[in-house]
Design a protein around this nucleic acid. Structure first.
Lengths: 339, 339
DNA sequence: ATGTGGCACTCTCAGCGTCCGAGTGCCAAT
DNA sequence: ATTGGCACTCGGACGCTGAGAGTGCCACAT
């Protein structure tokens, strides 16, 4: 009983099942994929694969279905990612290049990915952590409020209203703004805290509380806003015909509404690897996602991704195709942002 | 055959059906609602109501179900909006008041409404049209790009990157920014175009093309951003048990993803009335929403609402409760924003 | 004119038994 | 190690039936 053929069988099962959405039996297996052996032989292999936990049968006398473990093996060792066709690539690039705006780029990316994969697409906004500060704006809003606007070099704009204990002296704001920009502009956001806190001393003692307050607000905003926003598209694909989760789609929708869940998920996946990562079924510890898989990839500089994009669908998904799409979109997205 | 009782019967049918989700027959009708007559009498009334198109039976020998027309009559004339309880009101107010930010207010509102109605909630961002300009910021981004940031008095921040034909002269930007703010700050956005265009003359002839370009960009941004953004919550409620649309939820999800559809819908409903408006089933011309109803209300100043919120669910929804919730949230939202 | 009881009629749906076919596991033979 | 053969299992489709819900109508009462 050759080990190689067993893996071939697993691959065939996965591919067939993904295609038909029905448990696959030994007969159709030898018919559709031309393995040069008889159904009986396949049956032996299948029994072995089942013992090893790669496949399972929903009930006696039905075909086999891959388990999470089976998909995992398939993804890790058996699938060949088929690159997108040249026209597809051109279309992607053209579509993304029409974007006028960071928001627009992100929006287009997520829609594009949803359409390419026929699944739910998720795009995380570029993290503020790696980017540099372009400009910092302070705008007095009423007597005791200060609007802090942070503009980064990749075009993201963050805002925050700051409530002050006491009114701001009029002349302080322009000075503070000027100094802040002088010390902070052009620096990477991670490198900011230290020079900022040193800056306090340059002010009169009476003004130091205010200055510190503002600086802390800036730091907070940066910290909070980091990896905070997510956009999503293609939720309707969850309900598309043939995509019946054995359960309902409700828990999935619930999980998707909790952006926190998604963010944590993406972050965890980022830790696993900077490239394309796949989480399959129960590998997601979130209960609602027990029957879904996520394919994610970082974008931004290759070595230091700035955020992630992902595609989410039933465990029974076209991994090869999804991986190809996710990778392609991530790549073009990186290229656009590099400008 | 009294006209009054016929309407009572219709009301009873709607209430029962909304409650049980099952076609309601003459017997249970007289049992549950104590109409003082016999089932046979009710049957005559039901026949009349059916002839008039207010109710229908899914198949012979099943109970009756309200039609869109029936719900419409119910909403317009038969339902009594039950105001929320005092604790509920307090909870709403407290929850919304914790918000730190315009984004936060909107986010909290939409989640709150989704939870109150157990449906999909939609909140439109405050229109820029009615609000005034607080501050206008120009930030050079690279050689030929200018980031325009518009801050309104209700805390909304809009941004736009402007691509220029030729490099900007360094000294122009501060001057332009100063003049822009001098002429525009504090004015209502609708009133801006005229003074802005007059402003051009104040600059040297050589700079006028740039100035005009920027001004046009500002105007465009305002025009585009107006009523553009929408947030949504509670899509998972579409899939909640007992809420089976006769069709699938897919078309609904698709409609919800098309923000344009929702925006147009809300705008149309705003034209109908500034207060609470209800669209029932096929009254929505969008095909995907043929089995859903939307309850919407404006918020902001009573006379001149600044945007709308809405709750969307199956036609078979608790109209009285939903209307009460939508109205309450709109009211508290208005109050918060008035500060 | 309006309400009521009675009654025949219709139709859905749940339950049940049957049967077919797909698929398996095992074994003896190659 | 592979294969053909064979008995076995089980789910799902099919068809039938009976119960129950609900209606429409009619004759009668008020």
């Amino acid at each position: 009983m050759s080990e190689d053929r067993r893996l071939d069988v697993l691959r065939a099962i996965v591919e067939d099942y993904v295609h038909t959405h029905e448990p696959v039996g030994s007969r159709v297996l030898v018919e559709r994929h031309n393995l040069g052996v008889s159904p009986a032989t396949i049956r032996n292999d299948m029994a072995a694969l089942e013992d090893a936990g790669y496949i399972a049968q929903p009930h006696t006398s039905a075909g086999r279905v891959p388990t999470d473990k089976g998909y995992r093996l398939f993804v890790d060792r058996l699938s060949t990612v088929k690159p997108l066709s040249a026209p597809e690539r051109r279309a992607i690039q053209a579509f993304l290049e029409e974007a006028v705006d960071l928001d627009d780029v992100v929006d287009r990316s997520v829609r594009l990915l949803a359409q390419l994969t026929h699944q739910v697409a998720v795009v995380q906004y570029p993290s503020l952590r790696r980017s540099a500060l372009r400009h910092l704006e302070l705008v007095p809003v009423g007597e005791r409020r200060l609007l802090v606007v942070i503009i980064t070099d990749n075009g993201r704009v963050e805002q925050r209203v700051l409530e002050l204990d006491e009114p701001v002296a009029e002349h302080v704001v322009p000075e503070l703004r000027a100094r802040l920009n002088a010390t902070a502009a052009g620096k990477r956001l991670v490198d900011l805290p230290e020079p900022l806190s040193r800056m306090t001393k340059a002010f009169a003692v009476s003004e130091q509380p205010l200055v510190q307050r503002v600086i802390r607000a800036v730091e907070d905003t940066l910290a909070e806003a980091t990896e905070e926003r997510i956009v999503m598209a293609g939720t309707a694909n969850l309900a598309r015909s043939g995509t019946d989760f054995t359960g309902t789609i409700r828990p999935v929708l619930e999980a998707l509404e909790e952006q926190v869940v998604l963010l944590r998920l993406l972050t965890e996946m980022a830790e696993d690897s900077a490239g394309v990562t796949v989480r399959i079924g129960r590998e997601n510890e979130h209960a609602g996602l027990a029957e879904t898989s996520i394919v994610a990839a970082g974008y931004g500089a290759d070595d230091e991704p700035v955020a992630r994009i992902g595609s989410l669908g039933p465990t029974r998904m076209d991994y090869a195709g999804t991986i190809a799409s996710v990778r392609a979109v991530a790549r073009y997205l990186s290229r656009i942002l590099a400008q």
